[in-house]
């Protein structure tokens, strides 16, 4: 295997604060000790690959996949699409993108969600796809509703879709959330606020994309995802202690 070079270290300033008292659950679930920083090795620079063969034709269509195409979900029909890139602006092809979300009323199909908004019998709430050779992906889904959660007295999550991306190596593994342009709940959300850098938080907000909307069918939102890149260099010296 070619040595593509180590992963570019994570810039943790650009990521959320692990300890954020306004997001109460983080208080007991964030490490107190500093992380042990090392240059990446084979365990981080390799990762699982997934073949098209294990995917079904409706896996990236959340409007139809829960009923296997028998009946569509209720809600605002949207196309969520974008590219997966790395920090060097290179496309990440053939990588797995998975999403999950609440239904139009803000209710999740999960045994532990007891919110009084009803389940949609035609909506499951998860999808997956592989990016194409240019790093593009797309999902057809319904826009999820906001929902209340027991944090502070009256906290509500903005509308959001959870996203999990693999990249080509285990060290690129990332889970994040996509928010929607113009949602007034974003500035009130303590989970969004864990990202202190405002311009970084803005990168989680998908703009309305009329150019990719389809008339009389669906609106589109564009969401690009950037994963860690590799530091390619001709010069490698032996780092201290390795």
């Amino acid at each position: 295997m070619n040595d593509l070079g180590p992963l570019i270290p994570r810039d943790r300033e650009m990521h959320p604060e692990p300890f954020w008292p306004d997001y109460k659950t983080s208080v007991a679930r964030s490490p107190h000790q500093p992380l042990l920083s090392l240059e990446s090795g084979p365990s981080e620079e390799t990762g699982p690959t997934f073949g098209h063969s294990s995917f079904g034709p409706l896996d990236n269509n959340l409007i139809l996949n829960w009923t296997k195409g028998a009946a569509p979900a209720v809600g605002e029909r949207i196309l969520m699409h974008g590219r997966v890139l790395d920090e060097n602006n290179r496309a990440v092809p053939n990588t797995l993108v998975e999403i999950w979300q609440a239904n139009a009323g803000g209710r999740y199909r999960h045994k532990k969600d007891t919110y009084l908004a009803p389940l949609d019998p035609n909506f499951g709430g998860c999808g997956r796809t592989l990016t194409d050779e240019n790093g593009y992906y797309q999902f057809l889904t319904i826009r999820p509703g906001a929902y209340p959660w027991p944090n502070r007295g009256n906290d509500w999550r903005p509308m959001h879709i959870h996203i999990s991306v693999f990249g080509h190596s285990f060290g690129q593994r990332l889970i994040t959330q996509m928010y929607f342009e113009g949602d007034p709940l974003i500035p009130l959300c303590p989970i969004a606020a864990t990202i202190r850098n405002r311009s970084q938080l803005d990168r989680l907000v998908a703009p309305l994309d009329m150019a990719h909307s389809r008339r009389l069918d669906f609106l589109a939102y564009k969401f690009d995802i950037v994963l860690r890149g590799r530091r390619q260099t001709m010069f490698e010296n032996k780092p201290e202690g390795m």
Binding site: R10, D11, M14, H15, P16, Y23, S26, L85, E87, N88, N89, E98, I99, W100, Y108, R109, H110, K111, K112, D113, G124, G125, C126, H162, S164, L174, I175, T176, Q177, I191, A192, T194, I195, N197, Q200, L201, R203, L204, I225, V226, L227, R228, G229
Partner: peptide, 24 residues
């Protein structure tokens, strides 16, 4: 260069997306 997309918590219902059978 562009910075990595910031992370967010997977939340309590992560299993819906990643382990559907476990989520019921």
């Amino acid at each position: 260069h562009q910075p990595e997309t910031p992370s967010q918590t997977a939340g309590p219902y992560v299993h819906i997306g990643l382990m559907p059978t476990y989520a019921g």
